[in-house]
């Protein structure tokens, strides 16, 4: 290759410049707001303070944070519990049909998020399809109010992010040599012990990648709680939204955003560890 040392940097420069100017700088800017006071009329007053971070830990907001974490965690666990068997079944399907099955598992992920969420309004509404179905089956009581509940929010999150989790788990499953499972059987482990001691530990990176993805996107989500929770369920995403668009408390919104990003980074690091463990790398451990 006749590329000299500066050529690659030159090629990457415009993209890098764009990302630095419109992603790094704005993020640093907004996060720096977290250290300033809110102006009397909204806006920002440039006096240094840590008060905004203290407010994040205020019981009122900490509760919302923990509550969103709980909802996000539930969605994550449910998504993994559904995605794992699905990914496993796809990885066991005939070689030829695996890409097709995978394609159709991921396809909904690329259709509009709002529309996919809206579909659940249609299904869960008091006048929605499920209530109609129940009535048709002979149910005569009050229509069930399934919409605007926590379960509706969780269902929506799981539904929207499931394809990605299937993809992440499938990609580790498909890279797993079938001979490892055979070796386990050969050494005397039945199918269940083989799954628990070989298959599962080796596919944890996929589970972690999918799980972190669902959790991060769920905890910062504001569309699903707004549409399926009817605004009754404040999640961190909604809180940030409110600080910027209604309460006009940008410094506090910035502090909340910082908390979100820190959570995300912590989870990504955790995921990297899980990946390193399964691939047999040992980081930070004594070599003895």
């Amino acid at each position: 290759m006749s590329f000299n040392a500066t050529r690659p940097n030159l090629l990457a420069a415009p993209g890098v410049a764009w990302l630095v100017a419109f992603m790094v700088v704005p993020c640093v800017l907004v996060l720096s707001y977290a250290f300033f006071q809110r102006g009397v009329w909204g806006g920002v007053e440039y006096t240094f303070t840590l008060e905004n971070f203290a407010r994040v830990l205020d019981p009122l907001y900490a509760k919302i944070f923990l509550n969103s974490a709980r909802i996000a965690l539930t969605a994550t666990v449910v998504a993994i519990l559904i995605a794992y068997p699905a990914a496993y079944a796809i990885s066991r399907a005939p070689r030829m049909s695996q890409p097709i099955l995978l394609f159709f598992a991921v396809l909904p992920f690329w259709s509009n998020y709002l529309i996919r969420t809206y579909a659940w309004i249609v299904l869960l509404n008091r006048e929605g399809l499920i209530n109609n179905l129940l009535r048709w089956l002979g149910y005569t009581g009050e229509p069930l109010s399934m919409l605007y509940t926590e379960s509706a929010v969780i269902t929506g999150l799981v539904y929207n992010y499931l394809p990605f989790v299937i993809l992440a788990i499938y990609s580790t499953l498909s890279r797993l040599s079938p001979e490892l499972m055979e070796a386990s059987r050969d050494l005397g482990a039945g199918p269940i012990r083989t799954f628990l001691r070989v298959t599962l530990p080796l596919t944890l990176p996929g589970v972690a990648a999918g799980g972190v993805f669902v959790f991060v996107l769920s905890i910062g989500n504001f569309v699903t709680p707004a549409l399926l929770g009817g605004g009754r369920f404040q999640m961190v995403g909604n809180l940030v939204y409110d600080q910027f668009l209604t309460a006009n408390d940008w410094p506090f919104g910035a502090a909340l955003g910082a908390a979100l990003i820190l959570t995300m980074i912590a989870l990504l690091l955790l995921q990297a560890r899980a990946t390193a463990h399964a691939s047999g790398e040992r980081k930070g451990e004594a070599a003895q």
Binding site: C27, V240, G257
Partner: peptide, 16 residues
Amino acid sequence: PMVIPDIVLAVALLTF
């Protein structure tokens, strides 16, 4: 850009 929560990017850009 693929992992940053979009609400964070959104408010950052609005601020910017």
